[in-house]
Amino acid sequence: MLRLKNLSKTFVMHIREGLEIQSFKGVSFETHAGSLLALTGPSGIGKSSLLKCIYRSYLPSSGQILYTTEKGDTVDLAAADDWEILNLRHTGIAYVSQFFHVMPRISALEILMEPLIIRGVSQNKALDRAKEMLSRAGLGKNLWEMYPATFSGGEKQRLNILHAIISKPRLLLLDEPTASLDRTYKERIMEMILALKTEGTAMIGVFHDRDALRVLSDKRYDLILGRYCPVEAEEAEPRRTI
């Protein structure tokens, strides 16, 4: 479903007289429907930046990101027009970031209903689905009509994940999805992610949580070594300095 070919990202610091900082270089891998590929490597190696390049929050410096659409067409996400990227986000690519930012004065229910309504789901069915997901993630009824700005960090992250998975995307990008969750809610979220895998969603994830890495991942790509490695063989590595 997704294939990266020799992808690189360099940041140019214009406030530092054009200083260039290499994030990652020459990354090539692929991922398939119903599997999760974990990206590993020390902090600062570019794991989150790589996910943002796939989602096109960042524009890669070189290389290709070849995504196969539901119709079987191949789109290079590194070169596609902005309107095409926005359309793909609405129809099949979702992203869970480490931080959750939403419009003010929009309730948790409305946030979860939005991606379903965009895909043509009726108001009533979207409402029922949103309530079901909130309940499964342990977000009580007292929060459903509340604004997420008032939520705790863990509550925001659970809503963040639900917003990405409620429409059952074809490709799901996960950046530390369980980092701020306690054990009970982490297990619930992992169950929901595993269920989505069984329905055919392809996933790429960044995890510092070893339990989540072990339970959720099918393959692992090490950004330092530039190759696939066994999931169980990951070792802690020191932070990279620039």
Rank of each mutant, 00 (worst) to 15 (best):
L181C: 06
G153R: 08
K168G: 01
P104Q: 14
L173N: 01
A94H: 03
H101N: 12
V96D: 07
V121A: 15
K125I: 14
V121L: 11
S167M: 15
D128H: 07
G153N: 05
S167C: 15
T150M: 05
K156L: 06
R188G: 09
M190A: 02
I161A: 09
W144D: 11
E176G: 03
L109G: 08
R119E: 13
V96A: 05
E199P: 06
L171K: 05
Q157P: 04
G92Q: 15
L139A: 08
L143Q: 02
R183H: 15
I193A: 00
I161F: 12
M103H: 12
I106E: 12
V96S: 04
E155S: 02
K168N: 09
R119T: 11
I161E: 09
E145D: 14
E145P: 00
N160L: 13
M190F: 04
F100G: 00
L196H: 04
E132P: 04
E155P: 00
R129H: 13
G120R: 04
I166F: 11
I165L: 05
N142H: 14
I161H: 12
A94R: 04
Y185N: 15
Q98M: 02
P177I: 02
L194R: 09
I111W: 02
H101R: 13
M133I: 08
N124Q: 14
L139N: 09
K125N: 14
V96F: 11
E199S: 10
D128L: 08
